[in-house]
Amino acid sequence: MDIRALAMGVTFAFIWASAFTSARIIVADAPPLGALALRFFISGTLGVALALALGQSWRLTAEQWRATIIFGFCQNGLYLGMNFVAMQTIEAGMAAIIASAMPLLVALFGRIMGERMRPLGMAGLAVGFAGVALIMGSRISGGVDLYGLGLCLIATIALAVATLVVRGASAGGNILMIVGLQMLIGAGALAVASLTRGEIWQVTPSWPLGLAFAYTILFPGLIATLIWFLLVRQVGAVRAATFHFLSPFFGVGIAALLLGETFGPVDMIGVAIIMAGILAVQLSKRA
């Protein structure tokens, strides 16, 4: 993996982890699904407009359309939608820790589908999931909201599915156009979910809400997604997913700095175990 890919991966992990803190700020003053639908509508419209200005086309191949729709629905609709709802009752750092298990799920699904895995990889899966179980057990005994926790778990599975199909979306070019289109797909799904859920569209205006919403549109919304597509095309889905091992550290640090969240020794040990498991899985993939 070259320096460029390394820099892309670290930058993506930092921006991706910061989205949990900005989401926590947003859902405190706005309906989660409605706010997220508006975010994706704005981000998607900007992405498509910029792609058209750069000469890109929305005439995608059948494979690209299939992957773009699946990715938009899984990541933007299921993954982020469930996380936004969950963060009404659980902390941003906790959501980031659970989501960091995504590369472990990607490797596990690959193994289930017949992909060969070395003993180091199998050990990494066991260690990584043990770390997740350690943190979850500690939080459940501490009275964490089980509904929010369950939403985060389901959301992470949806993100793993999205990761496995993203290569099909980025294989034929038009990357920025695809980024914009999958956001518009997510916006539509979330708008329907918001109406179905009966959300009250009541917003409490504040400077933190405005700054968090603008940041989420530009960075986790457009920039991080574009980096992710390019990274997956360059190094593959499994290797790209490895950079999520940095997300627990970034997620906990940003939440502690901006939101004042605290984490106990068990949480920190669990984070270290998860990171070690993800690295072991990645090393097992190297020739």
Rank of each mutant, 00 (worst) to 15 (best):
V27G: 08
V27L: 01
V27H: 01
A28H: 13
A28Y: 02
A30S: 13
P31N: 04
P32S: 08
L33D: 07
A35H: 09
L36F: 06
L36G: 11
L36V: 10
A37S: 15
L38K: 11
F41M: 15
F41H: 06
I42Q: 11
S43M: 10
T45L: 10
T45Y: 08
L46Y: 03
V48D: 00
A49M: 13
A49T: 14
L50F: 14
L50W: 14
L50N: 03
A53L: 15
A53P: 00
A53I: 10
G55K: 10
G55T: 12
Q56A: 13
Q56Y: 11
S57M: 11
S57E: 13
W58G: 08
R59Y: 05
R59S: 13
L60A: 06
L60P: 09
L60Q: 08
T61P: 02
T61N: 09
T61E: 11
E63C: 07
E63P: 00
Q64D: 12
Q64I: 03
Q64R: 10
R66A: 14
R66F: 09
R66W: 11
A67Q: 07
A67I: 07
I70Y: 07
I70F: 11
G72A: 09
F73V: 15
Q75M: 13
Q75K: 01
Q75S: 13
Q75I: 14
G77V: 08
G77E: 06
G77N: 07
G77K: 03
L78R: 03
L78W: 00
Y79H: 15
Y79L: 11
Y79T: 12
L80A: 04
L80G: 00
M82A: 15
M82D: 03
N83Y: 00
N83D: 01
F84M: 12
V85R: 03
V85F: 04
V85N: 02
A86C: 05
A86P: 03
Q88S: 09
Q88A: 10
T89A: 13
T89Q: 10
I90G: 02
A92I: 06
G93Q: 03
G93M: 04
G93S: 04
A95H: 04
A96D: 05
A96Y: 03
I97A: 06
A99Q: 11
A99R: 02
A99G: 08
A99K: 01
A99E: 06
S100I: 04
A101I: 02
M102W: 01
M102L: 09
P103L: 08
P103M: 03
P103K: 08
P103V: 04
P103T: 09
P103H: 09
L104S: 07
L104P: 02
V106L: 02
V106A: 03
A107I: 00
L108H: 00
L108I: 05
R111D: 00
R111Y: 11
I112W: 12
I112Q: 04
I112M: 13
M113A: 14
M113N: 14
M113K: 12
G114H: 04
E115L: 06
R116F: 04
M117F: 05
P119Q: 08
G121R: 03
G121S: 10
G121A: 05
A123E: 00
G124M: 03
G124A: 07
